[in-house]
Nucleic acid binder design. Structure first.
Ligand SMILES: [Zn+2]
Ligand SMILES: [Zn+2]
Ligand SMILES: [Zn+2]
Ligand SMILES: [Zn+2]
Lengths: 146, 146
DNA sequence: CTTGACCTTATAGCAACTATAAGGTGCATC
DNA sequence: GATGCACCTTATAGTTGCTATAAGGTCAAG
């Protein structure tokens, strides 16, 4: 091990991730196949750290591993127009906003459900259980009027 | 097959779900073990439909199957206090709000990333790729656990 | 009695890891 | 040189809530 070289564990520490994750990324074709010591240990260099950090930043932004793979390829073609990159980010942003809207409506529904029951009663009279037991979605009379 | 009885497919249709889902819920201990025809077909009755609809409503509210299992048990003890039910719903609402907050901050970050690049350039100069290649939030590198 | 829609089970796959087992390496210390 | 220990290796299974496939059996209509 020379200076500027890392074992998988050292690379993991440097990137604040775990060795298993790095091996997993290798199997998934995100990390390059590293050289090995005579004993079979993986040896990484600083460009591997760069690549790993790129991957982790993409993950932090919620990109799927497949998207990350594509982003890595795009990032390598430095002279190509970046329109595809920009589009990928924009599309992902759209997806996140969609999930956000869904989660917001879930939160509202769940809050309504939660407020159904005043507490202190028994299951037989619990408006929450009642709401879960009948079709609130199609009911004319809403189960809960908070 | 008498009236008021369902095969798994008919039950699925009645609940607007799929037969495989019902069998899966049975394996997971959510649906009761049904009786069978001499040929081995599952036979369901209207209380099975009620139970299935209860499960599906819980799923609609985002409860995990484990939570649904517990809610089913709680719902069966009609004379017990409903505090546990109420607490389960409240806890789930908290989790949803937590996810919501994470998703909101992700949306903001992603919007900032998206706006980095004006478009029309090449990858080499793309601020998005640059952002993904450098430590933008460099004061802290939060390891996002989604 | 054949057709065809439906049913049965078992098994594998998805995403992105996490956990476990069983063993090998590298380096410091005795 | 032997030992100990932290770290490395691979393979395999588990997580969640389904979905897909294969290979076969049942039921009711025509
Ligand atoms: Zn209650
Ligand atoms: Zn809804
Ligand atoms: Zn962040
Ligand atoms: Zn760009």
């Amino acid at each position: 091990m020379q200076s500027g070289e890392y074992t998988v564990g050292q690379l993991a520490t440097a990137a604040r991730t775990k060795a298993v994750t790095i091996r997993y990324y290798e199997r998934q074709g995100l990390m390059r196949i590293p050289t090995r010591t005579p004993g079979g240990y993986r040896i990484y260099r600083s460009d591997d750290l760069d690549r790993l950090l790129f991957i982790l930043r993409c993950r932090h932004f919620g990109f799927s591993l497949e998207n990350v793979r594509e982003l890595l390829q795009l990032a390598d073609q430095t002279d190509a127009p970046c329109a595809e990159v920009d589009a990928k980010v924009a599309r992902h942003l759209d997806e996140v906003r969609e999930r956000l809207a869904e989660l917001q409506s879930l939160e509202a529904e769940l809050q309504r459900l939660s407020r159904c029951c005043a507490g202190g009663g028994i299951v037989k009279d619990c408006r929450i259980i009642e709401s879960l037991s009948r079709d609130i979605g199609n009911s004319k009379t809403p189960a809960c009027t908070p």
